[in-house]
Amino acid sequence: MDYQGRIIRPPSEADSILLQVTTGCSHNKCAFCGAYKDKRFSIKPDAIVLDDLAYAAEHYAFVRRLFLCDGDALIIPHAKLISLLETIRKRLPQITRVSSYASAKALAMKSDAQLKELRSAGLGTVYIGLESGDNVTLEAMGKHGSASDIVLQGQRAGEAGMKRNVSVILGLGGTARSMEHARATGRALSKMNPEQAAALTLMLVPGTPLFAMAEDGRFELPDSQGMLRELYELVVHTELSKGLFFANHASNYLPISARFPRDKQRILRQIQNGLAGEEMLRPDSLRRL
């Protein structure tokens, strides 16, 4: 398989075929993200992608899921993306789910009819980075679009029949906007009402603008207790009609898994226990991006 640069994929795609159809991210300006600083955005040539599909057909015929890399695959022009999905279906008939990251920018470039066509062609799940529902935080972090923009595009993807896995980042507002960030993010998640939501905890990455901001005192990262208080407020303000909620990423201090609305009160008690020191937190030495 032709992999250019470091490959980033969601934790739940660990067992998927990773097909790199683009390199990098077309935005690549988020202050907290260092994932694609080593490469420029590009759409990979058809010949390379077809060679990779041929290799996958020969060596991964037992794998039933496929993830389109890199960070912005959905921004590929619609006709080309439909052709790719049709080729995947033809070359890898065992694949039951194709998934991709989906930015609000990329989703906005597709009409409602085009999103439905992508779903029919096999794109079943999209991973959307909301990160924060607080517009002040989003602007400070260089995120593309407002919270309402991201929510709208997530709603459109859902209406097209795609399953949505939406990520948010605890600590992204710093200590200055901790509660505003947490509460607004819960409200934004509620409006989007995804099938799955995942809360990660911010870890400062050397070489990113946010790391520099923290070093010179323009950004203060909440401590473990501050992160738990954010998680509590986030959960309080989140209402999902029938969705999974996870805060069990390697970056999190307190691993949490829940189905909303059934488990909401249970995990609120779990977070309270963590705040009270009655439940062990993951030490910083074991936390990972």
Rank of each mutant, 00 (worst) to 15 (best):
A31G: 07
R266D: 14
N193H: 07
T125D: 13
K110Y: 04
L268G: 04
A104P: 00
P11H: 07
M179T: 12
G158T: 03
R64Q: 15
L286D: 09
H59A: 05
R64G: 03
L231D: 00
L74N: 02
G274S: 08
P45V: 10
V236H: 09
A14G: 13
Q114M: 10
E220W: 11
Y232H: 15
E195S: 12
G71F: 02
P93V: 04
R187N: 04
L50G: 02
N165K: 10
T175Y: 00
E278W: 15
G161E: 02
R91E: 06
A160S: 10
K163C: 12
V236I: 14
K110Q: 05
G243Y: 04
R183E: 05
L281E: 01
H78M: 01
L275D: 02
I256Q: 01
F246I: 03
S224I: 07
A47V: 11
M192A: 12
G34V: 05
S111V: 09
R64Y: 09
Y36T: 07
S178E: 08
K39N: 11
D52Q: 11
A57R: 09
D72W: 04
S251K: 09
S26E: 08
K242M: 13
S251Q: 11
K143E: 05
M203N: 07
I82N: 05
D112M: 05
L231R: 00
A199Q: 00
H237D: 13
E278C: 07
Q265H: 13
I88V: 09
T201A: 08
R156Q: 12
L81D: 00
G145E: 07
S100H: 03
I267Y: 05
I75W: 03
K37G: 11
D223H: 04
A197N: 06
R64S: 12
C33F: 02
R40P: 01
D263F: 14
M203I: 15
A160Y: 05
F41Q: 06
E239H: 15
M179L: 13
L221T: 09
I17V: 13
F211A: 09
Y60L: 10
I48N: 07
L231F: 02
L84N: 02
L18Y: 11
H249S: 14
P11S: 05
P222T: 04
S12G: 06
E131A: 11
L189E: 00
R119N: 15
N28Q: 11
V168F: 10
P283A: 09
R97P: 00
L74Y: 04
Q155Y: 02
M1Q: 10
M192Q: 04
E195R: 08
D51T: 12
M203V: 13
F245C: 06
L81G: 00
A73P: 11
G5V: 01
G277K: 05
V205D: 01
L81Q: 00
V126Y: 12
S148G: 09
P93S: 06
I76S: 03
M213Y: 12
V136L: 15
P194T: 03
S16L: 04
A198E: 07
A31Y: 10
Q196H: 15
G277F: 08
L50P: 02
Y127R: 03
Q20Y: 03
E117T: 10
L118D: 04
A121L: 08
L202T: 02
I150F: 03
R91M: 07
I48P: 01
P283S: 07
G226N: 06
M1I: 07
N165F: 14
Y3I: 14
A212M: 07
Y36C: 07
